[in-house]
């Protein structure tokens, strides 16, 4: 599919989700797996707006997907600040309520729902690739 460009605003998230649903349907994922992909993409785009751009209306998100054999490959590109995914601590899942941190879940969800998460920076562009394997 051609690349679709969305303004880096939170109200783009629902429109991006519509494209993701189209992609997962075309790819033939079951409802739960499709929901997982929708979650991973939503978290990625929210992180781009909040962390890479530091707020709404500062830049764009380029969305693209392709299906190759048993793989659905989604790419998201932005021109905001890059980050080191390894610097984000894993959330503590099995702790009592008082010790629960309210951040760090986004990246964790991406890794849990997708088979592969790749992040590279090329020049001024950050490229996140999310891959889901069928079956």
């Amino acid at each position: 599919m051609p690349t679709v460009i969305f303004p880096g605003r939170y109200d783009s998230l629902a429109k991006i989700a519509d494209l993701v649903k189209k992609a997962t349907q075309e790819f033939g994922l079951d409802r739960l797996a499709a929901y997982g992909v929708e979650t991973a993409v939503d978290e990625a785009c929210s992180n781009i707006i909040e962390h890479a751009y530091g707020g709404e209306g500062k830049g764009e998100i380029e969305f693209n997907y392709r299906i190759k054999d048993d793989f659905l490959i989604i790419t998201l590109q932005d021109t905001g600040a890059s980050f080191n995914p390894k610097s984000v601590p894993k959330p503590k899942i099995n702790v009592p309520l008082k010790q629960r941190q309210e951040t760090g879940l986004g990246l964790y969800f991406m890794h849990q729902w997708m088979d592969e998460v790749n992040y590279v920076t090329a020049g001024k562009t950050n490229i996140l690739t999310l891959i889901k394997r069928k079956g």
Partner: peptide, 9 residues
Amino acid sequence: DFISSAGLR
């Protein structure tokens, strides 16, 4: 229909 980590927070 959908909840992200922002909603879970």
